[in-house]
């Protein structure tokens, strides 16, 4: 399994040296959320009610931003070909790349979320549930997104196509992610929602690496 760490280290190193991608994702996330108090007015009750939904939708869109680059750079410079020829299953290589993608884009989003929740006057109990739901939901987004990113590889205007492909698949995560926060705010247990989010994650973990690898092989033909 040492090569898994090896691959992860390389992708993290690339992301850190280039730096801009993660920073842009978080900056987009913050700006998109901060627009809402200007748009709907500074009323505390209104903002608190829509906070979870706004933050989740902004997180979905932000995580889409870096998705296009997930395989594109490796595809263009020939690295992807060599990765596909490595004596390691392409499925696991995909998984390592998705993990690196989540660590460099998903994790910063989760870190920024509490601050934005405060901006939107989300009560404390909702805030922690939001962080928990994002922690369970964003890896699913990265996994599902990787399938889309692999499918649009080599096509012109892949970015737009990618959002059309992937955003509809994000809807279940959005529903249950926002649902978990709303449940807590109503004083109910959010456990069922979290368990469903966990189920999505396990399902995506089992299916998406295979689908992505198949799409990558197709792109390399």
């Amino acid at each position: 399994m040492s090569w898994l760490a090896h691959l992860l280290r390389r992708d993290l190193r690339l992301a850190l040296r280039q730096g801009m991608d993660s920073l842009m994702v978080v900056a987009f996330f913050v700006i998109a959320v901060v627009l809402f108090p200007f748009g709907v007015g500074p009323g505390v009750n209104t903002l608190a009610r829509i906070a979870a939904g706004v933050i989740w939708v902004a997180a979905l869109l932000a995580s889409m931003l870096a998705l296009e680059r997930l395989f594109q750079a490796d595809y263009e410079d020939g690295s992807l070909e060599l990765l596909a020829l490595a004596p390691v299953p392409l499925e696991l290589i995909t998984l390592a790349k998705v993990a690196a993608h989540w660590l460099t884009t998903g994790l910063p989003l989760i870190a920024a979320a509490p601050l934005l929740a405060l901006v939107l006057f989300l009560p404390t109990e909702g805030l922690w549930m939001l962080v928990a739901a994002l922690a369970l939901g964003t890896p699913t987004l990265s996994l599902v997104g990787a399938v889309g990113a692999a499918l649009v590889l080599g096509s012109r205007r892949g970015g737009v196509l990618l959002s059309l492909l992937v955003l509809p698949l994000y809807i279940p995560v959005l529903i249950f992610g926002v649902g978990a926060v709303n449940q807590v705010m109503l004083g109910e247990s959010a456990q069922p929602h979290l368990m469903i989010l966990g189920g999505f994650l396990l399902g995506a973990l089992a299916l998406c690496p295979w689908a992505s690898a198949a799409a990558l092989r197709q792109a390399l033909e």
């Binding site: 390389r10 190193r13 280039q18 263009e76 410079d77 020939g78 690295s79 070909e81 060599l82």
Partner: peptide, 12 residues
């Protein structure tokens, strides 16, 4: 395999 592309990452 050595193809047409060099697969050399500029930032490494």
């Amino acid at each position: 395999y050595v193809g047409h592309l060099d697969a050399v990452k500029p930032v490494l």
